[in-house]
């Protein structure tokens, strides 16, 4: 009851204040109240899709955004783009809750906190807003579909297998991660360690160090690891700034080739090290395609072309893609970039 009176009062106040402004500025934007629920599937109405990376000012997600904007051009939707600019773990929740009150039709979110963001996303669903996640998932009940570059298991095992291949399945290795609290990297580490225990008894994980998502810190940590563990055969860098950082440390230590470097990173940041034979392999999916696919999935969900239970869906230039029983749409196998093929990629 008090809410409805508060609503009336605020709407009254609102109209009071909007009136003069509307007279003065004929072009000014009016607010759209409750746009989402009724009009979501309505024909002819432009869908509003909100798109959130895990963090802004990060080259990985800049590439993601590029792909998303390409899809926006194709599909003719309105795009809202926002994300955290600092390390506050509550920021994504706040943006989702703000989007709910902005009246968007679909949200596409790369989740920093799997459980943490689920409450906010469920709230959005209750208001009739459709939710897809991409890059990293929330709990399955808080979204309709998850656009995945590869499963956490696939990434973890892929990294471990590649490391084992480079080391001849024996010897010590170390991991450089972004921060110790980064949820998706911890998920990957879990699968890396499981794969290690299961398949590679002669390999040993000697240490895991955080680099705070900074290249220089990754370089310093790698220098220390190389000194403290003389038998180290491989550095696995699982966040993108850490790969060139680790490579630089190996280069400075004069251990190029003797200590292998692999990791998840952008080809453009690792080209020189790959060509010099310091970094052996960089694993990544086509990041722009991930954003492109996320936006296509969001659009299809919002316009009703994609429904729960569908087993495949057509995503623009990517063609027909499979949807698995958990609602995950898989982009396809990640690429392994190496000396030979790195020049074919421009991101």
């Amino acid at each position: 009851m008090p809410q409805t009176t508060a609503m009336k009062r605020s709407q009254f106040l609102h109209s009071l204040l909007v009136l003069p402004a509307a007279l003065l500025l004929p072009g000014c934007n009016k607010s759209e109240t409750g746009a989402s629920a009724e009009n979501a599937a309505g024909a002819g109405k432009k869908l509003t899709i909100a798109f959130m990376p895990k963090s802004k000012g990060n080259s990985y997600f800049i590439n993601c955004e590029k792909g998303a904007r390409e899809a926006v051009q194709e599909l003719g939707v309105d795009l809202l783009f926002d994300g955290p600019t600092n390390t506050d773990p509550a920021k994504q929740n706040e943006i989702v809750e703000n989007w709910i009150t902005l009246g968007v039709d679909v949200m596409a979110v790369a989740c920093e906190n799997k459980e943490g963001i689920s409450g906010a996303l469920k709230k959005a669903q209750e208001k009739g807003i459709k939710v897809v996640t991409f890059d990293s998932d929330t709990t399955p009940d808080a979204r309709s579909f998850f656009v995945s570059q590869a499963t956490a298991q696939g990434i973890g095992e892929g990294l471990m297998d590649e490391a084992a291949r480079l080391c001849g399945e024996e010897g010590e290795f170390a991991i450089i991660t972004a921060t110790l609290t980064a949820a998706n990297m911890n998920e990957w580490r879990k699968y890396i360690e499981a794969r290690l225990a299961e398949k590679y008894p002669k390999m040993k994980l000697v240490d895991t160090k955080p680099c705070d998502d900074q290249k220089d810190k990754a370089q310093q940590e790698t220098t220390n690891l190389l000194g403290a563990n003389p038998n180290l055969k491989c550095i696995m860098a699982i966040c993108s700034p850490a790969v060139p950082g680790a490579a630089e440390a190996v280069k400075q230590a004069g251990k190029a080739g003797a200590v292998k470097v692999l990791g998840l990173g952008l080809p453009s940041e690792n080209r020189a090290y790959l060509k010099d034979g310091i970094t052996q392999s960089v694993i990544l999916w086509k990041v722009a395609d991930l954003g492109y696919l996320a936006l296509h999935a969001a659009h299809a969900l919002g316009s009703g072309a994609l429904k729960a239970g569908d087993t495949s869906f057509k995503a623009g230039r990517l063609g027909e893609l499979q949807v698995d029983s958990d609602g995950a749409i898989i982009l396809g196998k990640p690429f392994v970039f190496n000396k030979e093929n790195v020049d074919q990629f421009d991101f």
Partner: peptide, 19 residues
């Protein structure tokens, strides 16, 4: 209230406080 979308809605005002 004039230029920002859905700023004055009760849901948003309560979000401002919650956040």
């Amino acid at each position: 209230l004039n230029f920002a979308r859905n700023f004055g809605t009760p849901d948003n005002l309560s979000n401002i406080v919650r956040h």
